[in-house]
Write a protein that binds this DNA or RNA. Sequence first.
DNA 1: CTGAAAGCGCTTACAG
DNA 2: CTGAAAGCGCTTACAG
Lengths: 356, 356
Amino acid sequence: MRSKGKASATRGIRQLAEHLDISIGTVSRALNGKPDVNEETRRRVLAAAEELGYVANQSGRSLRQGETKVIGFMIESSQEVVENADNFFLGVTSGLQHCFARHKLDLLMLPCPADEDSCEYLKRMVARRIVDAMIISNTQRIDRRIDLLLRAKIPFLAVGRSLSAGNFPWVDLDFEGVAERAVERLVARGHRRIAITAPSTEANLGYVFVDSYRRALERHGIRFDPLLVIRVKSSEQGGYRAAQELLQLEDRPTAVILIYEIMAIGLYRRLTESGILPGRDLAVIGFRDAPRARFLQPSLSCFRMSLHDLGIAIGQTLLSNMPAYRAFYPDGGRNIIWPLELVSGESDAFEIGALT
Amino acid sequence: MRSKGKASATRGIRQLAEHLDISIGTVSRALNGKPDVNEETRRRVLAAAEELGYVANQSGRSLRQGETKVIGFMIESSQEVVENADNFFLGVTSGLQHCFARHKLDLLMLPCPADEDSCEYLKRMVARRIVDAMIISNTQRIDRRIDLLLRAKIPFLAVGRSLSAGNFPWVDLDFEGVAERAVERLVARGHRRIAITAPSTEANLGYVFVDSYRRALERHGIRFDPLLVIRVKSSEQGGYRAAQELLQLEDRPTAVILIYEIMAIGLYRRLTESGILPGRDLAVIGFRDAPRARFLQPSLSCFRMSLHDLGIAIGQTLLSNMPAYRAFYPDGGRNIIWPLELVSGESDAFEIGALT
DNA sequence: CTGAAAGCGCTTACAG
DNA sequence: CTGAAAGCGCTTACAG
């Protein structure tokens, strides 16, 4: 009936207890910092554990305690995400870990295979009880994962709001603020024909961003023109495509707002090929800082944030929604709109006549 | 004595068995595809499991079977990795998953916190038995993680060779081939002063690359000049710095080989600021394709590979080193040197006189 | 302060 | 073909 393994160097609590000639119960209590353990005993146990490299088997522990001490971060590894080479996940990771370390929680990233339905994948991971809570990203306009997680009653947080379900914990970027300030800045410099790029996917952020842009335009008395919403991939390649579409528009826009800074690389390239100078013939504003766009010439006006700080905010919001940790975050709400800071560059540093 | 949880929607095998009015043993056998189960019974069990959303609790299963069916991929989330925004991890993920799916193994990424010693982190993860096998990356010249994993007798694979330990499974890129072809190409065009960039860390790939470059030079009768090895970060910023150092060298080199293509973005920028044209005044060759460098002008001569295929190779090599899966990969070796393909660009498309 | 024992959810030899 | 039972490694009320 013995299971196979056992060849391992790290052995179980039973061996450790035998080695110390005390009961496994006492060993466990000593290791877990319970009171009511003789200090001398505790010292011996800790020393022996260190020496033998003993660490409690997580399966045994999880089974007994009904919790895994693991938070999962689901990420998609679709071709598009890979090509974007987005540092978003890694960027927020440090903040998340900073936040989880305090409670001895470990963060694991769960990459959903591109050929698997993301909802099925999540369902499987949740049902197997590999994690105590989940962070999901790339939130869709309608996102079945949210309903699934609510039904399963597992604590979770979505990076990005959604139309699905009524009330659930999410943290999202301040698209309204970004759109408002970008439009205001451009209008102040005489622009009236302002284009915007949006992803061609069902990710909700595209919808939220375009809606915000539309409202910002209307506040400045500019009619929304659907032709100026350019749907392309959020990548260098997408930026190149976007420039191409811009150039073909009649009554060509004098400004464009990019949903992802990286696109500026391809956009600049395509514009340059046509002899159009960004920052002189076309104003460009980018969204969501990407370090590799910092070397563009002319430098890009863009909106930045600290991914580390965002990670901390996500972590705290999640924890404040977990019964076991709620007490640590008394004023932790359910939702956060994360602000971004405008960094002035040269890419929109010109004024145009009102008649252009 | 009951553990707390239990509020969950997904219940255990006991409830499922009661619901079907058969024993849990039969339910388990039916679910796990064991023979000796009445087909009608199996159908009923599977249907009920589907309906109730039952999936076996991983902790219970792992504890019993002594294996977790999880492969871990340890990644570092240091500031430098984040800034590189390397798509490497996500890129190989799809190949790994393709390979693991066949055996119903799940891939989890384990991000080591920047402020934790990577060896301690790994030790903890391994001792807790969260995974059956590990993939480690960013292999160091001397890498204690390798000794640790060998001692713990847990199957693993390192992405990158190392001086540590004698014989262990690793997959690495063909630095020799890249250095040889790059040098050969440059020498054929009249270059004799050829610089190279290397990371300032202890990552072994820098050492391997520089050694290969040195031998390639010597084969062409060119003396190795340590001043031409420029140690900078493998990022846009690093490329900018590298250009700066290049410009300050007396007897300035006429060519430079970059260990990471992304650096070309900063390098081009700095060169342009000094009125030096890459592809005319300085030849540039990049290593390890990054999509976002494809929009550089002049286009970059570089070495590319399929990260997906590399992922498959890593997965298969790892599996062939795991007792439970070895049989599936009879001719799977321990080590692979992964070839790269040269893509000709304009960044080195000029010849210089032999006297330059 | 310590030990003995129960039980977390599962799989699997064993008996029938 | 199925059921009853053992046991994976751990934590924790309970008794002393």
